[in-house]
Design a protein around this nucleic acid. Sequence first.
DNA 1: TATGAATGAGAGTTCATTCAT
DNA 2: AATGAATGAACTCTCATTCAT
Lengths: 229, 229, 229, 229
Amino acid sequence: MNTAEDVGTVSGEDAPRPTRKDAARNRALLIAAAREVFARRGLEASLDDIARQAGVGVGTAYRHFGNKHELAEAIMHETIDEVVAAADRALEADDAWDGLVEFLESVLELQTKDRGLREVLMGVHEAKTDAMQDRLTARVRHLLERAQRDGQARADAESGDVGAMLMMLCHVADLGGDIAPTLWQRYVPTLLSALRPGGPPLPGRALTDAEMHTAIVCQHRMRPPRSTE
Amino acid sequence: MNTAEDVGTVSGEDAPRPTRKDAARNRALLIAAAREVFARRGLEASLDDIARQAGVGVGTAYRHFGNKHELAEAIMHETIDEVVAAADRALEADDAWDGLVEFLESVLELQTKDRGLREVLMGVHEAKTDAMQDRLTARVRHLLERAQRDGQARADAESGDVGAMLMMLCHVADLGGDIAPTLWQRYVPTLLSALRPGGPPLPGRALTDAEMHTAIVCQHRMRPPRSTE
Amino acid sequence: MNTAEDVGTVSGEDAPRPTRKDAARNRALLIAAAREVFARRGLEASLDDIARQAGVGVGTAYRHFGNKHELAEAIMHETIDEVVAAADRALEADDAWDGLVEFLESVLELQTKDRGLREVLMGVHEAKTDAMQDRLTARVRHLLERAQRDGQARADAESGDVGAMLMMLCHVADLGGDIAPTLWQRYVPTLLSALRPGGPPLPGRALTDAEMHTAIVCQHRMRPPRSTE
Amino acid sequence: MNTAEDVGTVSGEDAPRPTRKDAARNRALLIAAAREVFARRGLEASLDDIARQAGVGVGTAYRHFGNKHELAEAIMHETIDEVVAAADRALEADDAWDGLVEFLESVLELQTKDRGLREVLMGVHEAKTDAMQDRLTARVRHLLERAQRDGQARADAESGDVGAMLMMLCHVADLGGDIAPTLWQRYVPTLLSALRPGGPPLPGRALTDAEMHTAIVCQHRMRPPRSTE
DNA sequence: TATGAATGAGAGTTCATTCAT
DNA sequence: AATGAATGAACTCTCATTCAT
């Protein structure tokens, strides 16, 4: 039923399979829209809103993501990429400790602008988050280990501590919100002091990476997908 | 207690009729059910679920509470009462500082068992929460001031700091969840050290009580009741 | 369980069955309340509202009336009484025609103040209205017949015509509402002229009393009572 | 119509895509169902009933109409179109007076079959009705003015009079219902005689178009849509 | 393959009617 | 006999997901 005119979509690029580019672009459009909408309105935003914002049909969203959860995961993936990038930058700081601090600040700055990331970091999510969490966890561990090697972080500090502190700061940042966007900075020195050599050790033990993983992944607040049966 | 004279007015317009026994029971059942359901599934749980859990029709819930918000408020009221009671107990501790610590621990223990309280403390609520927030804020202030008078807390600590720390700990407790229910205890000494005299002051400034109020109240996640009119 | 004190309700009237007066008063209270509420808010007002206004439990309303329809009927009964009274007064006017006109005006004045009556006259009701309709119909017939005997109304006018005209005027009065409360008066002369001797006869035929009855009774707008099954 | 240049923008943001065929069919089904259901049961009929009658899910109704009011408006629009068409036909009658009469008769015939229209004409509606009311009012005025120019209607007749008469006739038609579907015809000559030159003027004054508008629009019986905020 | 219309379960809320007190 | 709490069906509206086009 399509007349010849729509052959021109990619107009002369003689792609091996047609419309591959389209699909990629739509995926990108959806992710961009989802980030913006989730960032602005939180994870409860409707897929219709996101699709509209993307200039795409809802059906397209389902072709690419299967369900809302998967879309959110994809968003997280993209977003976590930025966080990972920040971590990688921090890993190359001259001073290991400065790198660690720099990383925390980068993350906080990122999540201040992005309610999507905020909710993700604060554990409002589900399932396949796995791989991304792990990528992040690994970086955190590296940052800490580097500082430990340089004698700037105490040997008994654990990467789970850094994670916990990051989350605490996220929460304060969330609390401060627009009223006091830099509130979280007030508590950075105190928290980080616990990682410094010399003082009394932290009591008990931190979450292992695996536990952290489970902990975050288990905190669904987004309803599970309906069983299609 | 009624004298004979007003017999026959409009068939007993006097005594407000002291809450029927079954009504009281149902109210209690509803509150119990709501606490349990909110505790387990969060504030987004439906009234239908709560009513079912209470073994009661939805209509009954509406007779007692008018709308979902009011029910949540009532639950919160009950729950905050426990928190306030804990604060009042803490205010009578022999040692002011021990009282403050004791209070934090009590709250954390309470919220560990109750996702309802967790969400309330973490600011996932609205409107009429006001009074309760304020009751709590006042206690926190008293606890801190008492410790300051005794020279156990630094003079420049602010009650907003205690609030922020409480929230951070709540968040860690939330993170630990069932996997590590005492995780939060690991970070108590570090955080509280910032309130102790002697060290470097906290940079910037804390949220005032009013700001804290606004910050928490503005973070609705439960939609406001539809205006019926 | 009743102590001796409530023997004093009727205090010394040694009524054959006690508390008869109470019941009567409650009935009266309910009717008064229903008239007021229906008059103000229309037939869609809830029984709860009416009971509250009466200072009585809903259950009492059901003891007296069985269901909302019956209550509305009772209201109508009371209200129609006034209309009937107006008709009886009109029947004693010196001039038969003046009596007829006077009657119409009385009814219109009554219904201007009473949305309850308005809806009743405009046929927004059901069932047992029967007896009352009939009482009214009879009066209308008498008024017309008296005017016919005096040669002031044409012989071929039918009482259904008077009824129809009354309804039309009610409708115009309803239309005028508060904006033009006397609008209906503009159309009285025209309509009544058709009842006067001398002009061309009305084409077709009017509704018989029985048809009028059926017509009005069939126009439920208030939902029928739920089948209890 | 699209030139080649914008090929590839966002996959066809150009043509608004001319209403799908099945969508159009469903919309038609809904409108048909709504007309039928509203016609049979009045404006209080539920959207569920209408959707069921249309053989369509409720959601579909909401996709097409947003809320119950809008659906009713759409129905009314369609229906008023017919009335307007009747008026336009009447405006082309050879004889101005015959045109006026013809119009009244058309409307009455239409509303005899359609309780939906009946309620609309009798002012049981709201808000956006405005435009349609006005379209109708304008026609009525034209019809009357044409008759006045031809000397067939008295100069001091007002279009509000025609409106009032139309409503009165609607009411009688409503009264006659199925029992006497032509009852209203009995009162046409009498009423219209008041518009004819020669007789005594109508006392008082008619409603202006603006007043008529207000009068009708203010008589909601259908509750306004809940503000979703 | 993309579109967006259709679906229907489910949420909050109301109210006529019943029934324990 | 009166009370008003309890009930539950019904209503309007939303949104994740499916499916015809």
